[in-house]
Design a binder for these strands. Structure first.
Lengths: 130, 130, 130, 130
DNA sequence: GTGGTCTAGACCACG
DNA sequence: GTGGTCTAGACCACA
């Protein structure tokens, strides 16, 4: 479920950090769920153990995860979704995500119109959460 | 119009590269349009001249832009969009990109409907404030 | 083995790029071989670290090299050599390159026979002093 | 006959300078031959007039060309071929030319062996001078 | 210790 | 005045 893309210029640790937060925010990981061990995840992602360990540590420092020694690492909070539901600055917050999507879609020949059409279909028949 | 966020762990050059590709994909930059000069954009984005020049150079090597020395840098015809002209399996190709967007949008409390609304605005007002 | 000439008007990075491609083409560098580290080569060639790093990065984007962060840079499989696997019209494709070589060799008093002798030596002693 | 390649990283002026010297050395231009006018050549090569004019001026300064005002520009000397026929440092002089050939040949899928074979055929049935 | 990114600032090629 | 190349040197990501 969690993945990193070694060809993405974004640092691995940042990809993993975002990925975990996103999995929690979108409900794929729920409060109390146990995460893979550092070594397990490092192997699965083909990434150095230190990289995974550093991300877990940072997420624990942020209060997102909690580690019980000898037991495992768990989701601690439902990830502070929203934040400023009213004063959302979409151009600051959504823009980079959309730019990335459009840029990667364009590379494989998918246009903005295609994306919108696809999202509208998704909306009318929601798959899981969101 | 183009922006970068120095606090984003994504490298500046990657943010700018994506931003330009996305601007073209969304119609805000059209074939033949001239981009800001390297120095101008560097000042506007508060990044180094070399960083902008590097992005322009890479986008030229990728066939997205074309540069006329001593004249300027321009959007090139959308030739990069072959690849799979016919066989488009959106569920296979677009799905993972969309999933990541929605998961990361969820982190900051942005829903699918918000995303669709944002993209539709992008589509309807192309080539606005260059 | 790799060299650059600072008095040549050809940009240093282009000289190095060509030198590496030529070394691979002539068998002096083989698939899987590790290249000198960026810093090592920069010192040996008396050029800036960035110049070498830029060439390695571009050759990776071109699929000629592959880089393992924290490990090193290696020669990748000769995948770039598709294109026209069968249809090879040497008189159309090679001729102009050869003509230019011979004309420029003539400027410094080097004959066709000299060139052939030089290339044969290259071919017979591959992978010599790395 | 004279050409420049705008995609070659070598500066246009250097390409043209080399091209003229090479044409003289290889006998395509002979002593007393008239060169195209600056404007004519600029148009043919799709290059700025200043660029051609600067090359002609530099070659005149070097004694390779001579200009008769209102008449034209002419080849003045048979281009000092050889130079050090005995103590040729092939690795310094031939190497960059060969690297360029091999690198460009490799890009279009032509190997060192192909090049050698082609040159040997050329040698056995010489086409013009060389 | 290896490669990657960024900056400040100089100088060059070209129009 | 536009883009291109190079340097010195700092700091980061990763193994």
């Amino acid at each position: 479920m969690l993945t990193v893309d070694p060809t993405d210029p974004t640092p691995l640790y940042a990809q993993l950090d975002r990925g975990i937060r996103a999995a929690i925010a979108s409900g794929q990981l729920k409060v109390g769920d146990r995460l893979p061990t550092v070594r397990r995840l490092a192997i699965d992602l083909r990434v150095n153990t230190n990289t995974v360990a550093r991300v877990y540590a940072e997420l624990e420092r942020s209060g997102v995860l909690t580690t019980h020694r000898g037991v495992g690492t768990f989701v601690r909070e439902a990830s502070a979704t929203q934040g400023t539901p009213a004063r959302r600055d979409l151009d600051r917050d959504l823009r980079p995500l959309v730019d990335r999507l459009l840029a990667e879609a364009a590379v494989i020949g998918i246009s903005l119109a295609d994306v919108i059409r696809y999202l509208e279909r998704l909306e009318s028949r929601p798959t899981s959460e969101n």
